[in-house]
């Protein structure tokens, strides 16, 4: 395998990690008010994410940084081209991170309610927009060689909001919501766990319908055997997730939804390869793993770095999940209605 292909795989792996990990973060955020009614429940739900969400989000930062390092033309064309969606994602991630850290500082219902609404919206927006963005990439967007000889995005914001992309966005939204519900079913106890299990089936079925439509469209567009096989695998594993859920096997259900989230990324990358951004206007103006890439030397340097560091990261991040493996329920939250800043200590 050439280093260019290897780095295409690495970028895919980073997005797989991101979809699996921040996928359930988004789902938990989307479902916050659905599964948690009072303050103790809300805080229990958010505490399941507490030690994890920031580390999960780093997968995105590393995916961005690695794309910049390995495929600078891809990074430049994509980020300047998908300008407004990325801006909306950034705003969401800013609000969301701050909301997690600040919402329980005060006990006031209005303060907390506002942050909770912010968490739901700022989790939903990226959950949709990542689907929109990746669907557009796979579908191809207007790209053309500029007078300076570089491949630039020539469309506008509304080119990105086509029906196929919106279907992709809805699919990731539903998928992440279900993935989050499975996560909560596994990580909480009591009434939250019951509600999470109840909602998981409903949105899980919606996800199934959306995913089948989305995959059918994708396979119609991309006639590749591996894409067909992967799409079939997604459907089978999603059915397995729902079956495990029906049998009360919460761990297996979550594992299956995690695999599904990862397979979605792998399928999209398989559909792309060897392109990284196909042009919908002129196939010759597509960005691929060769014309978008860094030099062999840079790829080699980055390969050493990635090969050494990635296993270490996986070990200690996995260890964190093990440390915080206990289920959390509303009864674990001491004085749920007060915040640390409510009263001045003597």
């Amino acid at each position: 395998m050439s280093l260019n292909s290897f780095w295409f795989v690495i970028i895919a792996v980073l997005w797989v990690g991101y979809f699996i990990l921040e996928g359930f973060d988004f789902g938990v955020g989307i479902l916050l008010k659905v599964v948690a009614k009072d303050q103790a429940e809300r805080r229990a739900v958010l505490t399941t994410l507490g030690p994890l969400w920031d580390g999960n989000e780093v997968w995105l930062l590393v995916a961005g940084g690695a794309t910049f390092a390995a495929f600078p033309e891809w990074y430049a064309t994509l980020f300047s081209g998908f300008y407004l969606p990325l801006f909306l994602i950034l705003i969401s991630l800013i609000v969301r991170g701050v909301a997690f850290e600040y919402r329980s500082k005060y006990g006031k219902a209005q303060w907390r309610g506002n942050w909770d609404t912010a968490i739901m919206i700022s989790s939903a927006i990226p959950a949709i927009l990542w689907g929109v963005a990746f669907t557009n990439i796979v579908h191809g967007v207007p790209l053309a060689k500029s007078s300076a000889g570089v491949i630039e995005y020539t469309g506008g914001f509304f080119n990105l909001l086509n029906p196929f992309a919106l279907l992709g966005g809805l699919t990731t939204f539903a998928l992440f919501a279900t993935h989050g519900a499975f996560f909560l079913a596994l990580k909480t106890d009591g009434v939250i766990r019951q509600r999470a299990n109840a909602v998981a089936l409903k949105i899980g079925l919606v996800t199934a319908v959306l995913a089948i439509a989305f995959l059918a469209w994708t396979n119609h567009l991309v006639a590749k055997t591996d894409v067909h096989i992967l799409s079939l695998a997604i459907v089978i594993i999603w059915v397995a997730a729902l079956a495990a859920h029906r049998m009360g096997r919460e761990g297996w259900a979550f594992l299956a939804s995690a695999i599904t989230s990862g397979l979605v990324v792998i399928t999209l990358f398989a559909a792309l390869y060897p392109n990284v951004m196909p042009s919908s206007t002129n196939p010759a103006d597509s960005l691929n793993i060769f014309n978008a890439s860094s030099t062999h030397y840079t790829l080699k340097v980055m390969t050493y770095v990635a090969v050494v560091l990635t296993p270490i990261v996986l070990i200690y991040q996995g260890w964190t999940y093990w440390i915080f493996r206990k289920r959390i329920s509303a009864s674990n939250i001491a004085s749920p209605n007060s915040g640390v800043l409510d009263k001045i200590h003597p």
Binding site: G65, F68, V305
Partner: peptide
């Protein structure tokens, strides 16, 4: 924002500038 507002810069230096950024994420941010 390097990619969003400074795409020409990103293309020009990406081969060099991206590496420390990726290393920062992989080593430090995690």
């Amino acid at each position: 924002q390097f990619g969003m507002n400074w795409s020409a810069y990103s293309r020009f230096v990406g081969d060099i500038f991206g590496a420390p950024l990726a290393m920062e994420g992989l080593l430090a941010f995690f």
